[in-house]
Amino acid sequence: MASGGSHGPMQQFEVNPIVALKLGSYDISFTNSALFMVLSAALITVFLVYSTRGRALVPGRWQSMAEMSYEMVANLLRDNVGSAGRQYFPFVFTLFMFILFGNIIGLIPGTFTFTSHIAVTFAMAIVIFLAVTVIGFVRHGAGFLRLFFPHGAPLWTAVILIPIELVSYLSRPISLSVRLFANMVVGHVLLKVLGGFVVMLGLFGVFVLPVLVSIQALELLVGALQAYVFTILTCIYLHDAIHLH
């Protein structure tokens, strides 16, 4: 299965079709990547529905977890976008939970991390980018273009500033997607390489094992943090579209 016949550290990122499907000339097979996306969406639904089922006044463990994630995203949106951001809460919360679960499920050995594929992260980033641009134009009309020229700058600087701001604006989906994708890939390759050391060193692998455990813990933090960063950047972009800086 693996190219070159060996189980290298990159083998974990291979996308394999589970159910081969074709639509015209497009390959729309149900892959392991799609399977884990469905799995994480299902897990999120089960987690949220099950934990809030009791609707207790004093929340139990599961309900606190659900409330904490809800409040975290709600605060993030309120602090960064203001009250105008409330209507975008469902989308931002879904995004956060989807990425968070994708990152955390991917840390279980033998699973597939769909956030480690640029195709997935870039698809999310481009949707956010287009949505934010459309929101900006709908709210401000052509006035949205003021975003590309700082208020109060001398007019002749527009020749340089507008192209620079335009490039900066267009680079958003790239930086948004590359950050998440690269973090996930780096972490998982590191884990696999260190895991390989443990096996290769045999008995002495015991000395590498604690490092592996601490890297695993670090990856858990990185996974949560990257979901947070992705969400907060979405909020900042929304803020720019709604308030024009």
Partner: peptide
């Protein structure tokens, strides 16, 4: 350590993305 890494990574990616886009 994780958040420090995240900050460093964020800045690096921001530079690279702008250069690639330009």
């Amino acid at each position: 350590m994780a958040s420090g890494m995240a900050v460093g990574f964020r800045i690096a990616v921001e530079i690279v993305a702008a250069l690639i886009m330009g």
